[in-house]
Design a protein around this nucleic acid. Structure first.
Lengths: 161, 161
DNA sequence: ACCGCAAGGTCAAAGAAGGTCAAAAGAGGA
DNA sequence: TCCTCTTTTGACCTTCTTTGACCTTGCGGT
């Protein structure tokens, strides 16, 4: 016996799975309408099912032309192998840790040698002006930004998928 | 779907991205006419979307021969190349500036909506734990990391020089 | 100067979403 | 049965958009 919430979840998941880039936009009222329930039911499903812990982000806007946007963090988390990397990445990263991380990304085939060189160079340039506590934070931030793009690249980036 | 304001924003952004120098002049009444709405709607869009926070200046003059001029502080990503965007990017980026940059990257077709959402959320998550001077530095660092990957992406991602 | 038209500006009300919260209703287990 | 946890609902709130009446500014002619 699947509950209403389950059916709404399945519906949204279906949309997500069939989307181009793991991102869908819906109107709360429309979804509620489709399942003949109150709008807040949709909010409930989003709050309990599409959580960050489960790998989703939900953005919304109110007012005219409002919407709810659901984004799956990685299209295929385990396929890219980035999930694990991301997990053990803290807020701070020493030069040595960063280097090790870049190497393992290269070994995993997620970055080419050229890309690693570029990143290494850039990180140095952008983080090393700061002193130790801060520069490690900046380094971590840059590498996270990099990983986000790496994991979200649509079509073609997945050299191991 | 997208609201009138969104469409007007997209239109103006389009003009801006296709302008030679990141600066356009329009007549309020003309724009309003094109979208079949009241002129003050245009004012609203300018006031809410093309703010200094997001990297725009708006000047205008009344009376006969009046005009509205929008100047983008960010260079046009697809025309100038990500390298130029990079160059203008300082070490610090407020939430509004970051938002403006992401939007123009989306408008320029360099990022999908889903990617923008993903980046936006991730940046929020990774930078907002810190207080103002620091969080702006982290935001800038993350976005730079993102740009590095964006510009080095293989497979046709490089739509610029 | 003065007048009148042609811009753009302001502001507040009305409208259109989505969010919150807590109470009521179910479902399952001890 | 009773207790607890999850679902459903609905009344009320906040935010964003759209519209329209009215205001201000600049230019050109008289």
């Amino acid at each position: 016996m699947s509950s209403l919430s389950d059916r709404i979840e399945a519906y949204l998941m279906h949309l997500l799975l069939h989307s181009k880039d793991g991102c869908v936009e819906v109107r709360r009222a429309e979804v509620a309408d489709r399942f003949a329930c109150v709008p807040s039911q949709v909010t409930y499903v989003l709050a309990t099912r599409f959580t960050p812990e489960r790998g989703f982000f939900v953005e919304s806007r109110r007012g005219g032309g409002g919407y709810i946007r659901i984004v799956a963090r990685h299209p295929r988390p385990e396929a890219t192998g980035l999930h694990a990397v991301w997990q053990r990445l803290g807020r701070s990263l020493t030069p040595g840790q960063a280097e090790g991380l870049l190497r393992s990304l290269e070994q995993a085939g997620l970055l080419t040698r050229g890309e690693v060189a570029l990143v290494r160079q850039t990180v140095r340039q952008e983080a090393d002006w700061a002193e130790p506590p801060l520069c490690d934070l900046l380094r971590a931030a840059m590498i996270k930004g990099m990983l986000v793009m790496l994991s979200s690249s649509p079509g073609g980036r997945d050299r191991i998928g």
